[in-house]
Amino acid sequence: MTELVLQALFSGVLIGGVYALVALGLALAFGAMRIINLAHGELVLLAAYMAYLVESRTGLDPYFAIPLALIVVGVASWILFLLVDRIKDHRELNSLILTFAIGIILTNAILLLFASDVRTTSSAFLQDAVSFGDVYAMRGELIAFVLALVLMGVLWWWLKSSWYGRAVRAVSSNRGAAQLMGINPTRIETVSFLVAGALASFAGIALYTMSVVQPATGHALTVKAFIITVLAGVGSIPGVFLGAVLLGLTEALTVTFASSALQELAGMVLFLLVLFFMPNGLFGARARRG
């Protein structure tokens, strides 16, 4: 019993790392442009399929797909930005619908190119079990988790100390004032989308090495990222990480003690509970009242 719980907790934390990467990408684009990119999960999915492509065609380890994924997803994210940027009227509503449409396009493009089969890594190295006392993890899970931590660290440092990071934060907190300070918001938004794309690339490959993907995964990831954003508020990286781990834990425990069919339900219920009872998120970040 305790073993089961420990194992669930451990797996939950590990997947939480990747969830955090997905959510941070969503939060970054939201921070800069005040729009929810409903195609963000599909960008992650695209990266996962780049990993699949490289692995199945060349037999190389999925992580060798990083350059390809960065290019493909980066370009996709950039195009997405250019399209969203064209919307002038009813921005909030129309950008939701537009990114939703792009999500449909990407999901179906992946379905057309790679069929609807469930894919995961075939690398024996990544699938090897590593034990820590009574709990186990795949090597792929551990690598993905460490990668996620490192990337969060890099992102944190970048946002904190680079000129761009400061400008991004200035634009997210006050667009008008930032413009007066000579910051070009369009440039900042572009960079935000590119960085979000880069995060999505790593997240997608990591996901492929530790879990399974199929065309419908993209939409589910967007929803998870949004749930995490609601849990954490979009304010801080540690907050997003905690929210992601919380979602990972909730899902893992549900699968262990109830059934895997209820996994998504658990996340949704958590989401609604927080939304209604803690309108500022678990860590009190920002209001979202209309």
Partner: peptide, 22 residues
Amino acid sequence: ALRLSGPYFALAILAYAQIFRI
């Protein structure tokens, strides 16, 4: 969910649909 602004309402209602299906 009515008190929520745009995207939050949209996603909250999506969550409901999933819950009903399950």
